[in-house]
Structure formats: C-alpha cells, structure tokens
Design a binder for these strands. Structure first.
Length: 869
RNA sequence: GCCGCUGUGGUGGAAUGGUAGACACGUCAGACUUAAAAUCUGAUGGGCCUUAUAGCCCGUACCGGUUCGAGUCCGGUCAGCGGUACCA
C-alpha cells in the first residue's frame, strides 16, 4: 500500500531540507543574478498563525523556489516583529515577562511555518527584541539624532486619569479607554519626535519610480498631503508688535476674507482677547482641552467658536476683520491660523452662517447664499481690486500667482508649501520596546556613544504603569540613575521606549547579514542584495510601515549606510482571506421572519444562521428554501468573536501542507479579497491525489505500468510545452491560480495516456515543485533522482512543439458566431482560402443568402466576421 | 463627504477588443460495491423549440456610447467592501 500520505511525506522532506541546509543562501557567488524576495514579518501573537499569513508566504515561496531553479541567488528570509503591546498587557495581567511570552510565541510560529515547507534560510532569522538586533535600531536612532532629525517636544498623548496610564490609539475607543471605558483626555507630555516632514518631498517624488500598486502610492500621496499656497501676514488693529500669519491655498480669495480664526492653542489668543470677552474665551479654551480628538473632529457636525474681541486688518483692503477662536482650526497644520473666506470655503461658510458673519463673493460662478462656491476651474475673480492691484476677471490659477507675487513684493507674504504629514511621534510610555540610547546630564539630553550599545531593558518586578504617565521604566531607580560614561557625571536614562514601528523599519537590511558586527549591514553585501526585488504583505501597512521604512532608508542613504534610495522595488498586497460564506435570515422581536431591508435599525432583528442546504437562489438573491424569506449571503472577516477563524494546523493535519499551499493560491488572484472554503481545500487535495495516482500504483507503491522510459509523442510534447509556457508566464505575473489550473489540465490529459514517458513526468514534477514541494521531491526521488530538485534548471518551452496541424476559426455573421471551420496550418493566413471555406459552411451560407455581404473582417489566426445587411 | 477596490453560473474564479463561463467546488445521473465512502464516466448559465439530430433567443450590476465585434475601451448611475475625516 502506498497511497498519497502527506503526513508521512512532508515531515520527511522538511527534515531533509533542514538537515542538509538546502535553502541556505549562497553569499559568495557574485556572478549569479540575485533575487531578494521578502515577506512582511509577523508579530508572533499568542493565537499562532491564521490562514491569512500563509497566503503571502506561499506566494513568495513559490517565487523563491522558481527563481532558484532559474539560476538566481535567492534571499528569502523570515523573522519576528516581537516588541509590542499584547505581550506587555499579558505581562501586566499575569506577571509573565514579555520575553518569555514572546519566546514561546516565536517558537510556535516558527514550528508552524516550518510545517508548511517554506524555503526560508533560517540561519538568517532576526528578532527585533534581540539585543544584538535592537543594538542597531538604537544605532540608527543615533544617526537620526546626529543629523538633527530627532528632537523632543511636548505633545498631547492619550492620558487616562482613572487608569493612571497613557494609552495607544488602538486602546482608545470613542474617547474612552478600551479597558474599563474611562474617559481619556489629551495631556501634553515630553516626547521624542522624528522629522519625517523634512523628507516629505523626497518621499513623494520617489514614489513615481516604484513598482507598487497605484492605490498604495495614492494613499501615501494623500497621507503626505502636499498643498501649495501662500503664507500671508495680517496686522492687528491695536497691537503693532505682532501679526497673524496664515497659510492658505486660495490667496486669490484674499479680498473675500471677512474674519479670521485661530486654533485654541494659538499663542496670540491671550493677547487678542479683550476684557469683555475674557470669560467666554476662557470657558471655550477649557472646553476644547477636555475634548478628545474624536470629539473635536468631524463627528460633531456643528461648529463651535468664540469671538476674541480683537481685530486684524486685511492687507489688501485695509478692512478690520474680527478674530475668532474655533477648534475646527488645528494648531498642528499650517500656522494654526486661517483667514476665513466664507464665500468660497465650505467650513468657513458654515461657521459664518452659524455666527452671522459677513459672506462676500469674490469668485463668480456660484450662489453664495446657498453654499460656498469652491470651483477653481470655472470660477472668475470679482470684487478684488485696490489702488495698486486688481485681479478681477482672472481665472483662479492666474489670480493666485498675481496676488502672491504682489504680496511678496510688498513683504506681506510669500508662496509656501504645506504638508498634511506630521512629524513622527516616536516614543511610547511602555516597557516592552527598544530603550532610547539617550541619557540626561544636567537635565539635557545626550546621546550615548555607539560603543555603549545596546542599552538593554532592566528586569522588573511588575509591569504596571507608573501612574504618572511615564513608562514603567521610570520606577526602576537603579536603571534610571546612571553616570555619563564620558564625564562621570550623574545622569538619568530616557525612560520612554520606541514604538513598534522602529524594529520593522530596517529589518530587511539585517537579513542580509544578521551576524555583522561593524554596523547594521555589511556594505559589500548590501550593494549586492539591495533593493528588495519583491515585497509581499497586507494592505493594512500601505501607509505607516511602508512610509516609515522608506523614511529611515532615505536617512541611511544620506548617511552612506545603504546604496539605494528606496528599499522595496516591487510591492504586492495580498488580499484578505475571509471566513466561509454564511447565510442568515432575520426574525423580528415577535419571532416572525422578515426582510431586513424593511428595517432601518437592524439591531432589533435576530439573525438566524442557516445551512447552505436550507437556502436557494430566487431572483436576485437567496431565500429560505421553498419560501420567500430573504436570506443574506456573505462572508465575514475572520475573527475570534465570530468563530470563523481557520487554523492552518487543522488543514495541514487533514490534507497536508501541499494542499494548503495549493488551495491558498488556487482561490483566486493574490491581491483579491476572497472567502475561505474547506471544500475548495478538498478539491486541490483530490488533485494531488490524482497526480499521485497518475504515476503511482496505490497497491504496490511502484510506478504504474504505463510509466515507461520511452520517447514522448508529439501530442504529449504539445501538452507538456503548453503547460511549461503557461506555468512559467503565470509565475512571473504572480497569477498562481491560473498556473495551477494549467497543471490540472496537464494531469487530466496525462491520466488518459497509455504510455507515460518518464522524461515528460519529470518535467511536470519540476513545474509542480514550487507549489507542492513535498510531493514533488517525493516523486522526483521515486523517478530515480538522488538529489533535491530545488536547484534543477527550470524547464524551457519550445514553441515549435506546440503547433497544431490545423487552425480553428470561428465564423461570425454581424458579430455572432454562426459556424466553425478547421483550416490546414499552412493555409491559415491565406485570407482568400479561409474566407472561401468560411462561406461554404452551411450555417454561414444560410445567413449570407439572406442579405448582401458588405464587409469582410479577417484577423489571421483569430476570427472571421462577415457583415451582412 | 472624499479616496480606493470590487461587481461574470448555485459557489471560488477564467477569458492579448475576437467562440463568455477555462480550472475547480457543488448538484444531478450512471459505473464499481451486499451497502456506504473513496474512485471513475457523463451532464450542469437561463429560456424556447424538436421524437431526436439540429436550431433559435436572452445573458458578464444598471443606462448610454465607440467598434465589423465590448465582460474587456469611453461617459453616467447603483450596490458591496476597505481606508480617511473640518489639513485652510
């Protein structure tokens, strides 16, 4: 008996690959072309792998295996993004050191990944929590500091007074703490910031040359949010020494500025506020401080604000305009102050309407009594002139230029560019992160010298927050108090730690030589391996991780540490895998079946889950079988609470890793969102079984008698070479689903063959090997090969073996197929011959007789279309 | 609101502007079996018509356009999913 038994085959080959270090990357040979194929490394959570992980990992593994066979030197590593909140939260709860939790989880992840047969070079494994790793994270921070890109500032954090701790954004839900539901306020604290804004333009420009999805590039562009405009100074009515500087993208509407608004935190608020308004202003400021970010932003549709009592002077017409405070103006964007042009800005219009401020039309084309007119393409400037300048009758773009030039000539303003992108808040008040390589001597920050690295985390008794908002590290006096190694003076350590992003910003460099002692990466090797040729991961990292990593990479480039401007040449986002399709019908409170679309509030309804067998298609949608009760059919994001999470271990146990790999790829295009289906797994499992039986007799374990060492027939070669072509092209294009389909078609054909030439089977096994490597190795061995197939040359196809004897043509009349003909190959480009034969076809002739032939379309090798009227 | 993605059989999906539904799943029928599972064979978008062969009509979310020919290109509409939120 020797049926296909993945549970026996797979561990055996995994051991073979590991023992013989089959996938250890050759780092000597510089003659071979290189291919660096990278997965986004996982956070090793306590849940273990879910089926979403192996999707991207299988795709990259297929490519890695394929490229090795194509003669590339392949770098295909894996590691752990292991600092982070969950381990720390677990530590607070149970007292278990996050290191212990992390190690346990990493072991589990590693074991799971190995069970899937991925061809990683495990000698290059990195772990962001390893002191030998974060030594270099700290080293890079020093580089940033040296270059003036790291600074300290007081920045509001999510402070929860009840819990006595600072919360991460994801721990705050609707302005309340996730744990306990206590109010969270914004409290300024001393923080480290990174000047990513200094790189905004380069981060924007260099996107153009990247082979990334347009959607990701667009997200990053929006995130950076570059906008061009002008900064303009407004003098104040009674205060001569100060002025309000605003940023605007619409300097052309300056004549329409009828009031100004300052952010509540703006430094001039105090000076401008008059005695009569003092009380109101104070009340408003207090109110604003209490509000969370969420409350301040869009949710509260109604705008709030208060008049300061002060006035500014519009520089173009000398009008005195009131200065207000409102929290719809943000201190963190532009200058924290705006000139309000209610006629041509929706927010200003709303605000002006609410508080009865004047609205003036300076752009013609709309009706400002009804809404702000913001069309910059068709608008024409009106009511905009003074003794020195007029921009009347100009289109918007032209007017912008003219007025900006005038302002800058008069010293009243200048052209300016602003970004939505903010500097990166780079510190967290947490234990489980990289300590900063910074000490404070006489209260001033001082970087440690590189030979003092790594700064490691102290052992602590408890992981509870300090209660003051500082990190738990602040409570460890023996660690905090140190001496300056240079001067011997007493010093204090920085007690904040770095955010989780830090370690993932540069890990792709460390894989290149994880043992390297003189720097984060060996320069010679870096030149060979960088950039990453293909980077695959989830779309959820489209902005932050990828932007931060690009930023660090550019800094390292400027510092001469790396040789490329960008780290990741090609990026692909794998689509999310959803749970199995679910069917729900709905009942109202009384227990009657209802149509959910009749109800506005679905919460009143009870969703009843139905089995597939209880459901049928009717009209546009589904109904409960033999009723008219509508059924909702959809699949949901996998989540613990929904109970639809699929664990890859279960799949491997039942069907094997090869089936899991194959199914994950066969589901559909890599980038697409798609629902899981256990039946689909069974389908590919059956395919693998057929492949096995195509060659092996299950009774004896020997080859079937049809398997012979004979010459292949032309028909067999044709199928084989078509398969080689399709599989090769589809791997290159990451179209794994259709490549697998081609393998299935081959196998369906080969099963029918009376003799199965060994040479053809060997080639097929090689084509199968990136997808189902365990089975392929097993069959390869059975076919008499001694060595692994991992480095066998990838099969080449020969077009001349793929040609048919005849060419098939579909014959259309007015675009509809009415007949089909076979044409000898040597005549298939002969228009007259093909057309004559086409017209003789009975089904075609019938239509020709019914009208006049007015046009003949002949596309050689493709189609004939006859236009008849 | 804005930005992005996606709409094709009962399901996942396939289709350089050229025969829509490859390949799978499911379902149905048959073979094997005492029986079931597994396996193998066949059918399977909807409809009309015929004893049958054959033939015809409709069909890629919806409306319109370009073209000899549109799932594919263009304009508009709708729906679902994801992201984002007063950025002056």
């Amino acid at each position: 008996m020797s049926e296909y038994k993945p549970s026996e085959i797979e561990p055996r080959w995994q051991k073979f690959w590991e023992d013989k270090k089959i996938f250890k990357t050759d780092d000597q040979d510089r003659e071979k072309p290189k291919y660096y194929v990278l997965d986004m490394f996982p956070y090793p959570s306590s849940n273990g792998l879910h089926v979403g992980h192996p999707e991207g990992y299988t795709a990259t593994d297929i490519l890695a295996r394929y490229k090795r066979m194509k003669g590339f030197n392949v770098l295909h590593p894996m590691g752990w993004d292991a600092f982070g909140l969950p381990a720390e939260q677990y530590a607070v709860k149970t007292g278990t050191h996050p290191r212990t939790t992390t190690e346990k989880n990493v072991d589990r992840f590693r074991e799971q990944l190995k069970s899937l047969g991925f061809s990683y070079d495990w000698d290059r494994e990195v772990n962001t929590t390893d002191p030998d790793y974060f030594k270099w994270t700290q080293w890079i921070f020093l580089k940033l500091y040296e270059r003036g890109l790291a600074y300290q500032a007081d920045v509001p954090v999510n402070w929860c007074p009840e819990l006595g701790t600072v919360l991460a954004n994801e721990e705050v839900i609707d302005g309340k703490s996730e744990v306990g539901g206590f109010p969270v306020i914004r409290k300024p604290m001393r923080q480290w910031m990174l000047k990513i804004t200094e790189y905004a333009d380069r981060l924007l420009e260099d996107l153009d040359d990247l082979d990334w999805p347009d959607s990701v590039k667009e997200l990053q562009r929006n995130w950076i949010g570059r906008s061009e405009g002008a900064e303009i100074d407004f003098h104040l009515k009674d205060i001569s020494e100060d002025k309000i500087r605003v940023f605007t993208t619409r300097p052309d509407t300056l004549f329409g500025a009828t009031y100004m608004v300052l952010a509540p935190e703006h430094p001039l608020v105090k000076k401008l506020t008059t005695e009569e308004q003092q009380a109101k202003v104070d009340a408003y400021l207090q109110e604003a401080e209490k509000k969370s970010d969420l409350e301040r932003s869009a949710l509260s549709k109604k705008k709030s604000g208060v008049f300061t009592g002060g006035y500014a002077i519009n520089p173009v017409n000398g009008e005195e305009i009131p200065v207000w405070i409102a929290d719809y103006v943000l201190m963190s964007y532009g200058t924290g102050a705006i000139m309000a042009v209610p006629g041509h800005d929706e927010r200003d219009w709303e605000f002006a309407r609410q508080f009865g401020l004047p609205i003036v039309e300076v752009i013609k084309g709309g009706n400002i009594d009804e809404a702000a007119f913001t069309d910059t393409e068709n608008g024409v400037v009106v009511n905009s002139s003074n003794d020195e300048i007029s921009i009347n009758d100009m289109p918007v773009d032209e007017a912008k230029k003219k007025i900006t030039k005038w302002l800058s000539d008069k010293g009243l303003g200048e052209a300016s560019v602003n970004y939505k992108l903010r500097d990166w808040l780079f510190s967290r008040q947490r234990y489980w992160g990289e300590p900063f390589p910074i000490i404070f001597v006489d209260g001033k920050p001082k970087p440690l010298s590189p030979d003092q690295l790594p700064v490691t985390l102290p052992e602590v008794e408890k992981y509870e927050p300090s209660g003051t908002g500082e990190s738990p590290l602040a409570t460890i006096d023996s660690w905090v108090n140190t001496t300056d190694p240079e001067t011997g003076k007493p010093a204090k350590r920085e007690t904040n730690t770095m955010p989780q992003w830090a370690g993932s910003c540069w890990y792709y460099l460390r894989y290149i030589d994880p043992e390297y002692k003189q720097g984060p990466v060996d320069p010679e090797k870096e030149k060979y391996w960088m950039p990453v040729d293909l980077y695959v991961g989830g779309a959820e990292h489209a902005v932050l991780h990828l932007l931060y990593a690009r930023f660090w990479h550019k800094v390292l480039y400027d510092a001469g540490v790396v040789s490329t401007k960008e780290p990741f040449h090609r990026l692909v986002n794998q689509g999310m895998i959803l749970g199995e399709m679910e069917y729900h019908a709905f009942k109202d409170a009384k227990g009657n079946w209802v149509n959910p679309e009749d109800f506005e509030n679905r919460d009143e309804l009870q969703a009843v889950k139905l089995e597939e067998s209880e459901v049928e298609k009717k009209g546009e949608g589904f109904v409960k079988k033999s009723t008219d009760i509508p059924v909702e059919a959809r699949s949901y994001k996998m989540s613990k609470s929904r109970g639809n999470v699929v664990n890859p271990d279960v799949v491997v146990e039942k069907y094997g890793a090869d089936s899991l790999r194959l199914y994950e790829m066969f589901m559909g295009p890599l980038e697409q969102v798609k629902p899981w289906s256990m039946r689909g797994v069974e389908g590919v499992y059956r395919f693998l079984n057929r492949v096995w039986r195509m060659m092996i007799n299950e009774e004896t374990g020997e080859f079937n008698p049809e398997v012979k060492d004979t010459e292949a027939t032309p028909a067999q070669l044709k199928v084989l070479h078509e398969t080689i072509k399709k599989v090769t092209e589809d791997i290159e294009g990451l179209r794994f689903n259709t490549a697998i389909s081609a393998l299935m078609i081959f196998n369906n054909e080969a099963m029918k063959w009376e003799t199965k030439p060994v040479s053809v089977l060997k080639t097929f096994v090689l084509l199968l090997s990136p997808y189902a490597p365990h089975m392929a190795e097993e069959l390869w061995e059975k076919l008499g090969e001694k060595d692994t197939l991992a480095y066998e040359p990838w099969p080449k196809y020969n077009e001349s073996l793929m040609v048919d004897q005849t060419k098939h043509y579909a014959i259309q009349i007015n675009g509809k197929v009415r007949g089909e003909i076979e044409v000898p190959m040597d005549k298939h480009k002969d228009k007259d011959f093909v057309l004559t034969k086409a017209k003789e076809e009975p089904g075609v002739a019938k239509y020709l007789a019914q009208g006049n032939l007015i046009k003949e379309i002949f596309v050689p090798g493709r189609i004939v279309n006859l236009v008849v009227k």
